[in-house]
Design a protein around this nucleic acid. Structure first.
Length: 864
RNA sequence: GCGGGCGUGGCGGAACGGUAGACGCAGCGGACUUAAAAUCCGCUUCCCAAAAGGAGUGUGGGUUCGACUCCCACCGCCCGCACCA
């Protein structure tokens, strides 16, 4: 009696074709059924799928299939985040056009995704580089302009002088452009901004309602938005001779309690007053240039010493008569935060202290521990920062002396407001979103610059502004800018000669609304109201933690902007969010330090590694995120070709909780493969043995049925909470129980229970291994498709066991266990327990003081 | 510096305050086989030859009849943000 092995290479394409022919996963609005919108972050078409995609899409697909079986009307779409720099780099390096490179990649990846057997509605596929997509983006941008959500202003950016383009912060490596290697400059450039800061407060407050999001992500967004409560304080200014100046100096502070400790003021190098002084004083102009040359990278900032330059101005202390504070330009003051100016209180701020020590400025402690020796409040090299302590009190501060820090803040704020020199302010760290990129392969920003009329939106009837095809990449910079004809147009207002905006959108704009477009991807309008109303918000969004801030914050903003321009009523796009961990793998290097692919590596029994062909010894490194640079990648296509998609999916969901990093191991995949074959044998054996329609169940049959229904119940519970690894462990348990039952003499009642249990087994692993499940379902004699079947219902009477194993402790130490009916009362349990040998031995001649009984679980005997 | 998280067998990891180590991987022993692969059965936290027993969830304390779980302190690792005034 031999069973043929399960052959995924045959079965998987077969079932994929069946699902496709039957349009099993096509979604349509149906007000009679509850909807469920499950979405995984759409991929960038880099050319091939990687294991991270496999993990991400396997999780989403389990949910989609499970919820479909539960009776939900499921929307599960797929698309392509198709604009971006790699396409241009390919054009530069290989001479291919970004468009054909991108679409070739999409075709290859679509084929790979289809081989995974994902239950996607491919009729909704979108690519952001398709004019049918980005024309709506342009139309919405025009609406945003009309609604006051767009601003054009000059801003400091990272500028690569060789490639002549703006770089994102992530593209600046150790102060140099990642491609050109040129030192990156700070450059002031006119840019388009979306006014996300209009929504700072709302984006922050609404986080409280996002209870389906991980706390970690909510916290990251909260910190990113960075709300702080402080005081805007205005100083009078005098020149070196003490003559009053017309300008005021406005600073922002959250420590106005320390105003009596202020000994200087500092301005950003880009502060208007600094600029003004730079016109007059060459050393100020030089200082500004020095600051601009300094890198913007974190390391550069970390290393940078506090530097300042006196501007020859003095701020009049508002509460200390006759005290003048020297005003510096300083490299550590950021123009982008607050007012771009501070007052410095060296005693209670480390940066201010470093600065004061360097330039010999006085240090006046104004906060100290209550009752401490005044000498102890002297400041050395460390500022005293503990203002939260209840024992912190004000000193050296005139009318504030003796107050707590909060009291002092309140007093100063109130006085400053009364004097007309201060205003309590809420400040946010969040900055407006600069969306201009000097790139070809992006959505053209639909604006025309007219020398007479200024920048104007492209009239809607002229949309889309499409990218010209005939571009060259043989020179640095933006091909759109040097295209001979594309940018020359007539001004839509005066008809005179004008030029197009040659910048394109940041690709995060494209991904900020694609989930809304999926609801009606072929609609004439950007989004279809009825479809949005039915499908949105996304019920479960799944993707990497690396998007915790940018993409997820932009999308939240974008929905609000779309609401303001009448596109929709929904403001929160994702009601639940799940961030999955990375796929990691060991790394291998040879003696020369070159990285070696896992495919070229052989691991020997003792754990050491050698090169598969040369046999040279390799150094095994720790498991790290799979990356091309370290060559520790496994190609999903090869795995699917060898084991099938189900095995790959099963392995990706097993063992490791989905939010953690999962290590890809050959032996782990082999384990999943063995399980696939084991299930196939179980099903084959079950199908071959006849099953009596009715037969009395024996004790074993009862127990097996109970195990099956309990597994069914538990797996549903686990899938509801995305605990895929636990669901899989329970499926293994059930398979083990069935296999044990098959070993027993085949009594008719047991056969009946096995049959029922195997069917449940197949149904509960179907979301994870859909092809194998269909094949098993057919083998068991069913004609319908599991992909279109309802989730089985657990028999509630089987969920509770009849007997329970009760652990027995004496003074908290486990001594024995006893099996009793679940219904046994505490008194019965106590009586039974006290009679047991192990208990009597452990108790000895001590007196039993108390017996704690938790029926069905445990009994604890407490002696003296 | 600020904020957050995590420490459980050889490994990945289970465990409503109630039998710590489910399930998987690796390992060991056995069966089947001429043999290998595949498969099946059993064992597998540590100490003690076994049993009985003891120890055990980073360390030290606490709460509790009972703590991986709750509280306090410490140690270690990881992540996010970062001259944000």
């Amino acid at each position: 009696m031999t069973t043929e092995r399960y052959n995924p290479g045959e079965a998987e394409p077969k079932w994929q074709a069946v699902w496709q022919d039957r349009e099993s996963f096509r979604a349509a609005e149906d007000s009679a059924r509850p909807k469920y919108y499950v979405l995984e972050m759409f991929p960038y078409p880099s050319g091939r799928i990687h294991m991270g995609h496999v993990r991400n899409y396997a999780m989403g697909d389990v949910l989609a299939r499970y919820m479909r079986a539960r009776g939900f009307n499921v929307l599960h779409p797929m698309g392509w985040d198709a604009f971006g720099m790699p396409a241009e780099n390919a054009a530069i390096e290989r001479g291919v056009h970004p468009r054909s490179w991108t679409y070739d990649n999409i075709a290859a990846m679509r084929r790979q995704l289809k081989s995974m057997g994902l239950s996607l509605d491919w009729s909704r596929e979108i690519a952001t580089c398709d004019p049918d997509y980005y024309r709506h983006e342009q139309a919405m941008f025009v609406d945003f302009m009309a609604a006051g959500l767009v601003e054009r202003r000059t801003a400091m950016v990272n500028w690569d002088p060789v490639d002549r383009t703006v770089l994102a912060n992530e593209q600046v490596i150790e102060g140099r452009g990642w491609r050109s290697g040129a030192l990156v400059e700070k450059r002031e450039l006119a840019q388009w901004f979306l006014k996300i800061t209009d929504y700072s407060r709302e984006l922050l407050d609404a986080l409280d309602g996002l209870t389906g999001w991980p706390d970690k992500v909510r916290l990251m967004q909260r910190n990113w938005i960075g709300r702080s409560e402080g005081l805007r304080l205005s100083f009078d200014l005098v020149d070196a001779e003490g003559r009053p100046l017309p300008d005021k100096l406005v600073v922002y502070t959250t420590r106005h309690d320390t105003i009596f400790g202020a000994t200087f003021c500092a301005l950003s190098a880009d502060h208007p007053l600094t600029r003004e002084q730079a016109e007059l004083l060459p050393e100020v102009a030089r200082f500004r240039r020095e600051c601009a040359a300094l890198g913007t990278s974190e390391e550069a900032i970390e290393r940078a010493e506090k530097k300042g330059l006196p501007l020859g101005l003095f701020a009049v202390h508002p509460f200390r008569k006759g005290v003048l504070l020297p005003v510096y330009a300083a490299n550590f003051v950021l123009m982008a935060y607050g007012e771009g100016a501070i007052f410095g209180c060296p005693a209670h701020d480390q940066r201010d202290l470093d600065f004061a020590r360097k330039y010999g400025l006085p240090v006046i402690p104004v906060v100290a521990r209550a009752g401490s020796d005044p000498a102890a409040s002297e400041i050395g090299d460390t500022a005293f920062l503990d203002a939260e302590g209840a024992d912190a009190v004000m000193i050296n501060s005139d009318f504030l002396n003796g107050m707590t820090v909060p009291q002092a803040k309140e007093e100063i704020a109130a006085r400053a407001e009364a004097m007309g020199i201060g205003q309590r302010t809420v400040n946010y760290r969040l900055r407006d979103w600069g969306v201009s990129r000097q790139r070809y392969w992006g959505c053209p920003i639909p604006v025309i610059h007219c020398p007479a009329c200024g920048p104007l939106p492209v009239p809607k009837h002229d949309l889309p502004v499409t990218l010209p095809e005939d571009v060259t990449f043989d020179a640095p910079g933006n091909p759109l800018d040097r295209h001979p004809t594309w940018k020359h147009v007539a001004c839509p207002q005066c008809g005179g000669p004008a030029t197009r905006e040659t910048d394109t959108f940041d690709t995060f704009v494209d991904s900020s609304w694609y989930f809304a477009r999926f609801c009606a991807p072929h609609a004439e309008a950007p989004v279809d109201h009825d479809a949005i109303r039915y499908w949105m918000p996304v019920d479960q969004y799944i993707g990497g933690i690396e998007h915790a801030i940018l993409h997820l914050l932009y999308s939240r903003f974008y929905m609000r902007a779309m609401k303001r321009t009448g596109q929709m009523d929904i403001v929160e796009p994702f009601s639940s969010l799940f961030t999955q961990g990375m796929v990691i793998h060991q790394t291998y290097r040879n003696a020369a330090g070159e990285w070696i692919l896992p495919a070229d590596t052989v691991i020997r029994d003792d754990g050491t590694a050698v090169h598969a062909t040369t046999g040279e010894p390799l150094v095994v490194g720790p498991a790290e995120k799979m990356s091309k640079s370290k060559k520790n990648v496994i190609d999903p296509e090869e795995i699917i070709a060898r084991y099938g998609a189900d095995t790959a999916r099963w392995f990706m969901l097993s063992d490791t909780p989905p939010e953690r990093d999962i290590e890809w191991t050959e032996s782990g995949v082999e384990g999943s493969w063995r399980f696939v074959q084991r299930v196939w044998r179980l099903v084959g054996e079950t199908a071959r043995t006849g099953t009596p329609a009715t037969a009395p169940l024996g004790r074993d049959g009862e127990a097996l049925r109970r195990a099956a229904h309990q597994a069914l119940h538990a797996v549903g519970n686990d899938l509801d909470h995305l605990r895929f690894n636990r669901a899989i462990a329970r499926i293994y348990e059930l398979a083990n129980a069935i296999q044990a039952a098959l070993q027993r003499p085949a009594e008719p009642g047991l056969k009946r229970a096995i049959r029922e249990s195997v069917e449940i087994l197949v149904q509960i692993f179907a979301p994870m291994m859909p092809h194998l499940a269909e094949e098993c379902w057919r083998a068991l004699g069913h004609s319908g498709l599991l992909a279109e079947s309802a989730w089985p219902k657990a028999d509630p009477t089987l969920l509770a066991s009849e007997t329970a194993t009760i652990a027995i402790q004496v003074n908290g130490k486990r001594r024995d266990e006893i099996v009793l009916p679940v219904a046994a009362s505490a008194e019965e349990i106590e009586a039974a327990v006290l009679r047991m040998d192990n208990v009597r031995r452990a108790v000895g001649d001590k007196t039993v003081r108390r017996v704690v009984v938790v029926p069905g679980r445990i009994a604890n005997i407490v002696t003296d």
